[in-house]
Amino acid sequence: MTDAPVNRPVAGILWMVASGLLFVFVNAGVKYLGPRVPAPEAAFLRYALGIVLLLPTIRPIIRARLTRRQWGMISARGVLHALGVGTWFYAMAQIPIADVTAINYLSPIFVAIGAAVFMGEKLAARRIAAIAIGLLGALVILRPGAREIEAGHMAMVVTALFFAVSYMIAKRLSDELPPMVVVSLLSISVAVALAPVAISVWVPPDLETLIILFGVAVVATTGHYCMTLGLRAAPITLTQPVTFLQLVWAVSLGYFAFDEAVDPYVILGGGMIIAAVSFITWREAKLKRRAVIPPPQATKV
């Protein structure tokens, strides 16, 4: 996804604000369900129910005439993303929404590291410093030794890593396939990958659960669409800092809706990660390099 000229900055910011709000509603829906159904089943239902939204993309997928190598990349991405989605649903049921949101910001940092290791991206001193600040932000959130690190926190770190690898594969696929095809095949492949695990732990869902998960699918899809419109309207260097608002909303939602305490260390650590990601993005734009670092929304469920 490339940056557009700065011709509609206000529109770009508003679209990204809307995207962030929608993803907070996704978090709220999943948090409300909690452990009502096992995490693999909830994740499977989210994607399976959302496939109905992808019916218009069947024809473009057929016309794409995918090669065996592309199918392999799509399958690998589906499995990795499915693992990330499963751990994300688990984390949402175990730890505060603010912690989930803040730790997920690590995905772009992991992408920056992966781009250097696997894609030959150069790591200048400033970029190394930004990555170090981002990782330090994660330590501020987790505070090992100062508090008990729950399984949900570790699950969320793993989630950020899985989503980062998924995004890097998507970057390769987007060079060869239309974005609509890449997004649609991700949803289908994730549903297929999650199906066996979901069946093994299946608990018959009630109607309310199905309605909420379908709503999550609709809202998440709309959120990604709003993000796309935002990135088309304004450069990512302008819209990237707006994603910090999502952490503010997540903290507010957790406090008012789920009686979760406000943890200043989570806000500080999340702010450090966002600052690091924003700096790396700004440097990419200043050097006029092809954008590698994604906005945090691009690695959402």
Rank of each mutant, 00 (worst) to 15 (best):
M1E: 10
I74P: 01
T243P: 00
L123I: 14
L66K: 07
N27F: 12
T237P: 00
I199T: 07
V203P: 00
V158Q: 05
E121F: 09
V192H: 02
C226M: 13
A291M: 11
A285Y: 09
S166I: 09
D3A: 13
I273V: 10
I109P: 07
H153G: 11
I293L: 09
K171P: 09
R283K: 02
K300H: 14
I133C: 13
A198G: 04
T67M: 12
P5Q: 09
G12K: 07
L186Y: 07
A129P: 11
L253S: 06
A146T: 02
Y225C: 00
M119L: 15
I273D: 02
M1R: 14
V292L: 09
R65K: 15
R147L: 13
M227G: 03
A82H: 00
G29A: 03
V248N: 04
R36S: 09
P295Y: 00
L66G: 07
I51K: 00
M180E: 15
T57K: 00
K122M: 11
I58T: 05
V140P: 06
M168H: 04
R8S: 12
G145N: 10
F89T: 05
A170W: 11
G72S: 06
F256G: 01
W71Y: 12
P296S: 03
W71L: 13
L139I: 11
V248S: 08
V10M: 11
S75Q: 02
P5S: 10
W282S: 14
N104D: 12
M156P: 11
S200R: 03
K286V: 12
